[in-house]
Design a binder for these strands. Structure first.
Lengths: 211, 211
DNA sequence: AATTATTTACCGAATGTTCGGTTATATGTG
DNA sequence: CACATATAACCGAACATTCGGTAAATAATT
């Protein structure tokens, strides 16, 4: 007979019945990386106001209350954490990469474009930064948004300088890349075609290579 | 003594007491245009999920229940109506204007830029179209978004043709104007400076005048 | 035993929506 | 004209649902 204690909680009950007998695996803490990826996917597709805690929890496989164990300050903390994650991504995959003078400029550019294309899944995904630029979200997350964009611009500015541009011209061009990527993502979304985004990546390439 | 019947409803009571005695004005329907402008201002700054009916009602001066009299299908109908309003704006102030061969191309361009600048209040305001490009909103409003953008592109394509460009080149340039405006609005918002948007308007001008 | 991780069950507040009713306007009818 | 009727505009209050968030209990790990 199965001890009462074990039956009481069906989670353990199920585990013991179907898993534990054959392979006594222990349930492991859900990976922080996976957790963040799940949360990010919800926020970037629904925005801050559109993301409910139930959805956020479901995307991680945890229950709502378990999310509060990881993020005691709730939705705001979850969103901020996701934003910091994006900030780090930009710093790593754009800023640092494009500022690395040990790599040839055109190789840096190629890699950055590949990273960007991967980040937005070829144009299918909405940018998290854009998803949080509603007026009501700015007071909460504005700092992070600005930071990420500044780092993006810094990276492309350094790339431009490596291509022989003056700092001022390089900065202008860098801002253009950000505007073009953000704008093309919107147009791609609304027009339900990946073309604008893909064409824009090519445009950015040629902005540096043939200029 | 004031009849009981009149006191019961404070609206009428107030009217009779403070207005009716001196000027028997009749309460008039709130202007449709004003109504829409109020609703649009909320939706464009908060998005669909972020706009509450309380806010929407407050922006019009009506009560929540009164909004349901005008828009029996609630929030969705309100949003759709606002979107149709924007669609018409684009058709009038971009498509028709830029397609009018009775006006010199550079004058058309100048007017369109002025209209765009006015629409977004110099870059302060968020584009309604962008505010509704969240994944969850697309199934509801996607058609209207696409329509408005198609009309925008059509207008600028015709302008390009008037400037002597081939239809294909003209269309590419037209798409660029849309991408640039949308992108620069986002960057302007996030960086809290109107510069990107203002510079972009100049860029668009020079795209046609010096090309 | 003590701590961490997770869940079930729940709460108050806010949400979108509906209802019942009042007033003002418009439309008929004699 | 007068008088009844219909309808449009509006509002206060209540509706059901969903929201973000919490408390208490159990399970897993150290």
């Amino acid at each position: 007979m199965i001890p009462k204690k074990l039956i009481k909680n069906n989670r353990t009950f199920g585990k013991i019945l179907f898993i534990r007998i054959f392979a006594p695996m222990r349930p492991q803490k859900i990976n922080d990386q996976d957790l963040l990826e799940g949360l990010m996917s919800v926020i970037q597709s629904k925005g801050y106001d559109g993301s409910s805690l139930n959805e956020l929890a479901a995307s991680t496989g945890l229950q709502k209350a378990s999310l509060y164990h990881r993020f005691p300050n709730g939705k705001k903390e979850i969103t901020t954490t996701v934003l910091v994650y994006v900030e780090q991504w930009v710093e790593e995959n754009i800023t640092k990469l494009l500022s690395d003078n040990n790599i040839k400029p055109n190789v840096r550019l190629e890699k950055a474009i590949t990273n960007i294309n991967h980040l937005y899944d070829g144009g299918k995904k909405i940018c998290v930064l854009r998803a949080l630029t509603m007026d009501s979200n700015l007071e909460l997350f504005g700092g992070h948004l600005k930071n990420a964009m500044i780092n993006w611009i810094e990276g492309f500015t350094n790339l431009g300088i490596s291509f022989g541009l003056s700092p001022n011209v390089a900065k202008g061009k860098a801002e253009q890349t950000l505007i073009l990527v953000q704008g093309s993502l919107i147009v791609s979304k609304a027009m339900s075609t990946l073309n604008p985004f893909q064409e824009t990546l090519k445009t950015i390439k040629s902005m540096y290579l043939s200029g």
